[in-house]
Design a binder for these strands. Structure first.
Lengths: 150, 150
DNA sequence: GCTATATCGTTTCATCTGAAACCAGTTGGA
DNA sequence: TCCAACTGGTTTCAGATGAAACGATATAGC
């Protein structure tokens, strides 16, 4: 008879920790900037490399195309992102930050890093590197099970 | 102008890794046993220490009382869990596994450990301990922001 | 060219989640 | 012994999520 203590079960611990962090971040973004996490992710990726289609954004953020569609629509609606025609394909558009969007990004980014610093504040640079590498390995070994092929 | 590469942002990486693992586990439980993660968590905790109220289960699994209520109802409905009167308080019940429920648990637990082993297979015992300790710290430092208090 | 198939993005629908309202039962004071 | 405040649990409601169906455009094979 196998025994399993829930508190020792790593997938459970991982889920709890991740949910707590996400909840903290989500409520901060919402309160400070009226942004959802999915919207913030899009802004961050578009800021890095403007002129991406939603399909490319989905790959970059590992989010579902439905989520991307809704987040993009909200950002366009708020005037933070503009859609430009994609010369090569009329089904899609190139997304870029507007001036307002850029200003918001410049505002949010430092706060995001600050939040990260608070949550991972006790970690040394070496520990951060170790943790990041572990997440990579977990992500890779969990992916095969996962239907979504990000 | 702060720059933030999403792929380097730890809360993002944590969320992605956790979601992948959860999705893998959820679909396995669903396919093999018809259990949701919340239901499985309840079964695991009740197996460890029978005779808990839903309130205690919520604390042990860190799940919302609504989630616990629904998971418990589903398990009772399926005959895996039985409610016994709580002599000290008529608002609540003591939950325990039925014989069927115990049999299911004995069936699920090894599979759960197997899945965990597959996802964390590349980790040495020392790495597992390190990772667990890091999750503890993250959980602790994210909790203060989080409205839900255990 | 023309048609079948594939792709980008949106919409619809069914499910999951938790906040808030709610009901039943409990407790602490006057 | 009341009644007000509280607590355990359920129900209701609103938001988030993703699978599947859909419309519009692109592409490949004939």
């Amino acid at each position: 008879m196998a025994t399993l203590k829930l508190d020792d079960f790593l997938p459970y611990r991982l889920s709890i920790a991740s949910n707590r962090v996400s909840a903290a971040i989500a409520s901060a973004y919402q309160a400070l900037f009226g942004l959802k996490i999915s919207e913030w992710r899009l802004v961050a990726v578009i800021a890095e490399g403007p002129g991406m289609t939603q399909q490319a954004l989905g790959l970059a953020t590992r989010m579902d195309k439905v989520t991307v569609s809704r987040a993009a629509a909200a950002l366009v609606e708020r005037g933070l992102v503009a859609r430009q025609p994609n010369p090569g394909d009329q089904r899609s558009h190139m997304l870029a930050l507007t001036t307002t969007g850029r200003a918001l990004y410049d505002d949010v980014a430092p706060k995001a890093l600050e939040l990260e610093a608070r949550v991972f504040g006790g970690f040394s640079p070496k520990e951060i590197a170790t943790f990041r590498a572990m997440l990579d390995r977990i992500e890779a070994s969990a992916a095969p099970f996962d239907p979504e092929q990000g």
